[in-house]
Design a protein around this nucleic acid. Sequence first.
DNA 1: TTGTATGCGTTATCAA
DNA 2: TTGATAACGCATACAA
Lengths: 335, 335
Amino acid sequence: MANINDISKATGFSKSTVSKALNNSQEISKKTKTIIKAYAKKVNFKPNYYASQLRKNEIKNVGIIIPSILNNFFTKVLKGAQKEFYDSGYDLVTYFNEESPSKEMQILNKLKNGSLAGILISLAKNPFPENITKILLELNNFNIPIVMFDRISKEFKCDKVYIDNFQSTFECVKHLVSRGKKKIALVSQIHDTLIGKDRYNGYVEALKSEKINFDKELYLPLDIGDALESEITKLCLNKRIDAIISIEQQTTVALHNLILNIGLKIPKDIAIIGFTNDPIFKHIKPSITSMDQHGEYFGKLSAKLLIDRIQNKTEIKKDFREEKIPFSLIHRESS
Amino acid sequence: MANINDISKATGFSKSTVSKALNNSQEISKKTKTIIKAYAKKVNFKPNYYASQLRKNEIKNVGIIIPSILNNFFTKVLKGAQKEFYDSGYDLVTYFNEESPSKEMQILNKLKNGSLAGILISLAKNPFPENITKILLELNNFNIPIVMFDRISKEFKCDKVYIDNFQSTFECVKHLVSRGKKKIALVSQIHDTLIGKDRYNGYVEALKSEKINFDKELYLPLDIGDALESEITKLCLNKRIDAIISIEQQTTVALHNLILNIGLKIPKDIAIIGFTNDPIFKHIKPSITSMDQHGEYFGKLSAKLLIDRIQNKTEIKKDFREEKIPFSLIHRESS
DNA sequence: TTGTATGCGTTATCAA
DNA sequence: TTGATAACGCATACAA
């Protein structure tokens, strides 16, 4: 592979002239540029990216770490972030961890190699978040800024972008009440995360403000393998509930099918609101009212915050911003 | 930011000793390593990735260029490719072009900067594919290998991974005939691509082998803005068709709704087979029989081919492999 | 407009 | 086990 030195020797111009010519510098005459570029093309000159970046002392790669790309919300975030980074001249390196905290740590550890100018992360569900906090701190000490989005942690201080989770369930309850519902269940698969707790609180407070007694049995914090179906079936058939707020996409679809199979009507007997606004919700019959989280905007805003940090190199560990993304309730047939 | 030189001065060891210690070389005594590492940690030493890669003369980044990430097939491909690359020590830089040929060219042009060791690409729909071929050739001349998947081009020679498109529609027709259908329409949005043509041919040949006359009016090559709905409605109501093979996800869902709205039964009056196996197909009622393209395997295999090329640096432009991915017809209620 | 000289931070070779 | 030195390929300050 030819380098600048080779071109220099072959054309008789100095290395610096060659370098300048290839970078279209104004200093170099048109004629010289033509000669040098022609020769460069002839020998298939490819700049050495690493040498160039080393000399310029700039890193143009950023990273994003996502639990699962098969989740429609994260897909949208990725799209929004990619666009924002690309438009600002950054290349986006993408990592998925399949909800595995150990893989998440492995990835972050690897990134101590300094290949990235900054990192966007949405955390995997993790029973020991301290481990992650420790690594993130190390990365911060390396002057690598972190921006957390959606699945944030309270322990680690950095820029954060998330939805107003309290408000989201609060609004859901209000909406259902306005539709005449009073026995509203909350099904949560992420009850032990920060997000889950905020949503739970929003639910409880909304009931309170609507003067509806909180019924402990209508709050269903799920763990994997729990017998959701039988539980819900019982509640439905006993007419203990007339609405469900469901926080995760797959479960929402499962509930939807379940209720129809029992022979109940949606929304007449049981109304449903789902989170995430997966395209499925629109196409399924009856379509499902959902909380849209504006994934693309999430990605765009998170990327912006990170770029800000990268470009204002000083003070990586101060004045953290927390942005709450507005959400939208999309009204459909299920409520 | 501290570098190896700083550590060398502060600890009294030479630069080379420091470098070796930080890289855990066997040459260095345990004691020395401890001292050096402790000091490195203290001053938050971060290796300069670019200097390191320059010296080692290796590129560990690869790229993938995809038309749209909101397409479930490409999402799966991305997942499969990411995993394969990660497991082999490569980082994946991700680009989306939103089906814009000019953006696709912009991205490829940018990649002449040599930042990547190789590129995976699925082409955007493009009226002037020669332009892309030209840039891809340049990249090849730079010794950057290209692997095309799914949306390949015939003009450019490289490793390719694609589905057996001829066979796919061939199988569809066979299946529909086995269900008693004889008036089978083919709706295609990609009729002017290679894929579209192969699928058309598979459809025609299958009809022939089933001794069904090819009816020109049942082949519906669509362009954006075409009046698909009225066309299909007419065909359905006139009983000109009893089955539809639909090649794109969104259109498939639209057709599904349309047919139900007309008041016809699926599959009794009109059977449907859709391509891509979007999760929607499973959840919609009645669920849609579909051609699964094995997206993750697509990604995995494409990544493997690219890694092969990168690691056998000689002969980037020879012995191209073409891999046909097996597809699967997923039987559901719509047929 | 062109050329000279230097250094970016690391790693690898060889000598001690 | 450690150290001296060179080299990776490029871009820039400065001189001509």
